[in-house]
Amino acid sequence: MAIDWFTVGAQILNFGLLVWLLKRFLYRPVLAAIDAREQKLVASLQQAQDTKAQAERELLEFRSQVAELQTKRDELMRQTHQQAQAERRRLVDEARAEAQRWSEHQHQVVAAELQKLENTFAKAVQKEVFAVSRKVMEELAAVSLETRVVEVFLERLRGIGEPEKGKLAMAWAKSEGPVVVRTTMGLTPQQKSAIAETLYDTFGVKLELTWESAPELVCGIELWAVGQKVAWNIGDRMTSLEKVAAEWMDAEKKGNR
């Protein structure tokens, strides 16, 4: 059980060599691998933290953008709503004005049509009255309507009051042109001379007369000079008749309601 000092020395060398070899092939590589893994884990953790921080920043930014977009959208919606309201009001106003214009136009058309109808009706009535009167007068009095119209006209001339007569005489005396006599029917020479004589007798003035045909009078006679007129025609009588007829129709409408 003695100590072999050669073996002791050799074992010291062996042990030293073993320490070096194990450091070289075991401890250093394993420690390096552990360190590398730790660094990698630390780097991964750091990266994860950075990524998380970045994600949180982007999330905040995203939320901010969403809020901003929400505000902008609300503002745009409000503006669009206001514009739509204004546009609606404008279109409604336009449509209302157009309807008003159309309605007025229609009223005008109807009124014109009515006026036309009234005129047509008046003329038809005048003609009918004229025809009936003529027939009645011919059958009962053996006098033509034209003759009677002239007679009535002449009576009217004779019946003009003195103030009126003086005014007309003064006006006709100042007249440079002839006095126009307008009739719906052709006058006979006797009737023309009767009119001329009656004018002279009534006004005391020798007038220069011109004879014209006026079918729009339906039945009647007019005397024109310097804005002064003396007339008798069935149209004037028909105007009165129209007034009476209109009043009667209004009364009938009120009664029907």
Binding site: M1, T7, V8, F15
Partner: peptide
Amino acid sequence: PTASLSTTVALALT
């Protein structure tokens, strides 16, 4: 080898 006193002495000396 650790059953040899030489080895253990060597280790102890180390």
